[in-house]
Computed example of a mutant assay.
Amino acid sequence: MSGSVSKKEQLFALVSANPYVTQQELADALHLSRSAVAGHIAGLIREGRILGRAYMFPETRAILCIGGANIDRKLRTAAPLRMGTSNPVSQHESYGGVARNIAENLARLGVSAALMCAIGDDASGKGLMNHAKSSGIDTSGSLHVSGACSGTYTAILDHSGELVLALAHMELCELLNRDFLISRRSQLNAAAMIVADMNLPPDSIQLLMNEALVNNKPLIIVAVSQPKMARLPAVLNGVRLLILNQAELEQRLVTRFSSHEGIIGGCLQLQAQGVTDVIVTLGAEGVIFTDAKRGLPAQHLAAHQAEVVDVTGAGDAFAAAVCWSLHQTPDDMQLACQRGLQLAALTIKTETSVLQTLDATIFNEG
């Protein structure tokens, strides 16, 4: 066994020095058969240490976002909403979905981003994929479902831009099941970080948690709604970070919180269930976050002051900036939250779900 390991490490060193080396050249240098070389390479790919020809290395690995991708339809009332009657509205359509929005934000921030979602073969699905590719997102792991309609998210906003009601048609995400994820295991293993939204079926979330434990890979789970909190397993071992809002936290713990101290107590309950860190978003009140990696107590950060144009996408922007920051500086949760709040404030000033002028220079100040 020790000889086999030694040969594999020698092979890894040769590939590191020359990613374009051929298998025959490796076989000659190591005095191995071509089949033995192929076996070692397959093992390195399974371990996520190289990503196949031309043997891309972890420094270039993508942040893989798994979950919802859909068409966002935003209807904004021209005056205060009146129930039980017709309300004049303006309408705006864009590409959305929690995982998709996070992936686009990440790509615009300049990191390698991949999206694993399920879309139909309709015009919406084709548009979603074309837009993602044009944004620099790798969509090669996504599922294309013949004869299906792609997902939609319809948000009703009041005249001030605040969300009144949202209607989500996300049933294609049910096809991102355990068997599908296993079929994409090489891409899962190759990712630098996995960001999963809770549109995924429960068995898929459990699989990602199990593999994060085995592979010591950061897994960030982003809640999407109160009803889908039921998809989160009882034991949260393997989750590096859970991002959710106060209502979703209350749904999980079957408890109402009336103070920041109560919310901090709720975060500690989630940590007792196995998650490493928790971020609770509080809208205009900012966020509460834990910082287990540095052994610091839970803290509150105030939100940035911003004129609200449209809140849709602000939470996804926050999550993306947090993921980007943790990818750069893995153990600084406070910095990640500060960056998240900064990007969220910029996003709510626009009508788009993703800030179209976004790049990493926005974090240079401070």
Results as ranks from 00 to 15, higher is better:
residue 268 L to Q: 14
residue 109 L to A: 11
residue 186 S to I: 10
residue 284 A to D: 11
residue 154 T to S: 12
residue 315 G to P: 07
residue 289 F to Q: 03
residue 181 L to T: 10
residue 263 I to D: 13
residue 12 F to K: 15
residue 154 T to H: 04
residue 237 N to G: 15
residue 1 M to N: 10
residue 130 N to H: 13
residue 281 T to W: 06
residue 249 L to F: 00
residue 276 T to W: 04
residue 142 S to P: 09
residue 322 V to S: 00
residue 335 L to K: 13
residue 281 T to K: 11
residue 120 G to F: 03
residue 161 G to C: 04
residue 198 M to L: 15
residue 365 E to P: 03
residue 192 A to H: 14
residue 87 N to A: 05
residue 83 M to A: 11
residue 235 V to T: 14
residue 89 V to R: 08
residue 223 A to R: 00
residue 163 L to S: 09
residue 45 I to H: 08
residue 224 V to M: 01
residue 320 A to Y: 06
residue 226 Q to K: 13
residue 336 A to C: 02
residue 179 D to W: 05
residue 5 V to T: 12
residue 40 H to C: 11
residue 87 N to F: 05
residue 81 L to N: 04
residue 11 L to E: 08
residue 80 P to S: 11
residue 61 R to N: 13
residue 76 R to V: 01
residue 268 L to V: 08
residue 295 G to L: 04
residue 302 A to K: 11
residue 233 P to Y: 00
residue 290 T to A: 04
residue 329 T to L: 00
residue 327 H to Q: 08
residue 12 F to C: 06
residue 52 G to R: 13
residue 267 C to F: 07
residue 117 C to P: 00
residue 182 I to Q: 14
residue 120 G to T: 03
residue 253 L to M: 10
residue 180 F to Y: 15
residue 68 G to M: 11
residue 54 A to M: 09
residue 361 T to G: 09
